[in-house]
Write a protein that binds this DNA or RNA. Structure first.
Lengths: 209, 209
DNA sequence: GTCCAAGTAAAGCGATCGATGTACTTTGAA
DNA sequence: TTCAAAGTACATCGATCGCTTTACTTGGAC
């Protein structure tokens, strides 16, 4: 009857709705903020009908949490891959996290965004509300510290706990300044500072080089 | 007539509406977030009628900007005061900013909040919208860097620009981790890291003490 | 005592928010 | 070929958003 029902052509994104929603969430929540991104904007970007959205996610909040879980899983995986490359010394492992950060944060779509860490940003936006988000971020950042601390111990640092926490401060600072200064350059400073802190924390046995 | 007009007793906060609004903004915007704080919540906390609010501020956004300007002015003043104390060496001046940070961030009302830097948080919430906010934050953080760089130069650092930027990364990292970890402890680690970076950046002339 | 700036209450504006309901169409596998 | 799963359009819900309006009441300076 009349070729395609009434008026509007009946195509939108097609079959992979859930994946498109998650991609749109990753882009919009990160680049424009969680509160600032409404459902309407989300489903428009994902090329998905509102109804379909709510068949995949019970609430917007559920999508936010899955978005953060996905980011956290991906980041954890990338760190693991980075650290498990052939024969890196513990020192180089520590530094590799900084160089990784220096390459990392261009948004999807390739465009530079300088919007810092999605998890931290979510914690800021969550404020008091959304305790699950707070918890996820808390857990992730503690995990990073633990990882840094472990490598610092293997590197033979005099006080591995302190060095691990200090390096984490540097990582977080570089990422945060990205947002405040709208510039990616703090990451290089963090790398150099990390070098100094690591060298200072290791026992003086400098075998020439 | 009937004693007090119709029903409700006609008292609210009384005369100092503007000041109460700014105090409520400082508390709520910081502790609960800017987007999450609606006008209704704001005027309730400030003990002010909605009408009065809009006689003092054209829009909510104008209040946000004044809140940030006030915070920025206060912080700048406190830094100046802190640096201009009697006979601090440049090294001690640099470190004093870290100890200052370590005491600083308990919210109004004395309660500990661990919500990081109001300016950074505002930049995160602003995302792409609110360019004036972005600009204010950008300007403030650049000012801090400039200040650190200047002192680093006076301290005789080999590369004062780099040291200034590195210390700024530490300051920002400590403040940011406050939010992500919901803990004030990163500030102590930042202080110790700053000691190391400063010492490393100065020429080796260590005159005993 | 008069007057006016400052403050108040309460109703309501249009817009947008997150979320649902109804009814229809496409797709892919059995 | 059939049929259920997946997707779509569109209208709408109540709540809340930022903000405005009308009409009234104080407090303090003169």
């Amino acid at each position: 009857m009349e070729t395609e029902s009434a008026a509007g052509t009946r195509q939108r994104g097609g079959r992979g709705a859930r994946e498109r929603i998650l991609q749109a969430a990753a882009k919009l929540f990160y680049e424009e903020g969680i509160h600032a991104t409404g459902i309407a904007r989300l489903v428009e970007t994902a090329q998905v009908s509102t109804r379909t959205f709510y068949q995949h996610f019970p609430t917007k909040n559920a999508l936010v949490e899955e978005y953060l879980r996905n980011y956290e899983a991906g980041m954890t995986r990338r760190i693991e891959q980075n650290l498990s490359r052939r024969g890196l010394s513990p020192q180089d492992q520590l530094l590799s996290l900084f160089t990784m950060l220096a390459e990392a944060t261009s948004g999807p779509s390739g465009r530079m965004t300088n919007r810092g860490c999605p998890l931290h940003n979510a914690a800021v936006e969550a404020a008091g509300h959304m305790p699950d988000v707070q918890e996820l971020v808390h857990h992730h950042k503690n995990g990073i510290t633990r990882q840094l601390t472990g490598i610092a111990a293997r590197a033979g640092a005099a006080n591995p706990d302190q060095l691990g926490r200090q390096l984490n401060v540097l990582l977080e600072g570089a990422t945060a300044l990205q947002t405040s200064l709208d510039s990616p350059c703090p990451r290089h400073d963090a790398l150099e500072a990390a070098r100094v802190l690591i060298e200072h924390a290791l026992p003086k046995t400098r075998p020439a080089n």
